[in-house]
Amino acid sequence: MTMQSVLKRTTRQMETKIEELIQAGEITLIDAEDFPSLLECARRYVETEHRKRERTIVRAKEHSAVERSAKIHSQYREKAAKIVTGVAVAAVKQYIQWTKDLLDSSFFLPDGTEVTWGDATKVQHNLYIGMLKSQRSGLDKNIDLHELAIFDIEEGGASSLRELVTA
């Protein structure tokens, strides 16, 4: 599969291909032959899912469905994250080169311990992943709360939450 042939595919065809790859649970060596194509497929899929999510959120807000909007927002974000992660992990497994620079670079564990990529154990990588997932979860909740605040301010005809609550 060449980059030119990927660009000729419609967005729906790419969505279908990505969903098939994710449902299969792995990306074969044939699928992973053209790393840029996989990334382009994933980018277009996430872009389409983002547009769908935005349209769904607008519709939900128009019908005063705040709870439904937050749930839909979360579901789309989770789906897009799973798809991008699945494609990226599979592609990286095929193409990553553990260079000296990468092996010598470091990261910090939740307890503040600095460890290099080359010396980090499976347990240390899992600790770091857990920390990143926790940070992402907190950011997602914060985003949802700000979106709800905007919705309430607009619905209440106020310029701020304080104005809305004290009115």
Rank of each mutant, 00 (worst) to 15 (best):
D101P: 04
A24Q: 14
R68C: 06
S64M: 11
L161P: 05
Q75F: 10
V123M: 05
V46P: 07
R53G: 04
H146T: 13
T56I: 10
P36M: 08
N142A: 15
T166V: 15
A42K: 04
M3D: 14
R68M: 09
L39K: 02
Y76T: 03
D31N: 04
P36A: 07
T121V: 02
L38K: 03
S160G: 07
V66L: 10
R136N: 13
T28C: 11
R44A: 01
S137E: 15
I143A: 00
E78V: 15
L29I: 13
E67W: 12
Q13T: 05
E47M: 09
E40I: 00
T56N: 08
E147H: 08
E147I: 01
I96Y: 13
D34K: 14
G112N: 02
E26G: 13
L109M: 10
S64C: 09
Q97T: 12
K82I: 03
R9Y: 06
D119P: 07
Q4L: 03
A158F: 03
G86W: 05
V92D: 09
I18E: 03
K141M: 13
T10F: 06
K141A: 14
R68I: 06
I129D: 04
E62F: 11
L139M: 14
L21N: 07
I143V: 13
L145K: 12
T85L: 07
T48E: 06
T166G: 02
L103A: 14
L145T: 14
I18A: 03
S134D: 08
D119T: 14
K82W: 06
H50P: 04
E15Y: 03
R51N: 10
Q124I: 05
T11L: 08
I96H: 12
V6Y: 07
G157P: 00
S5P: 02
S106R: 00
L139D: 09
Q23A: 15
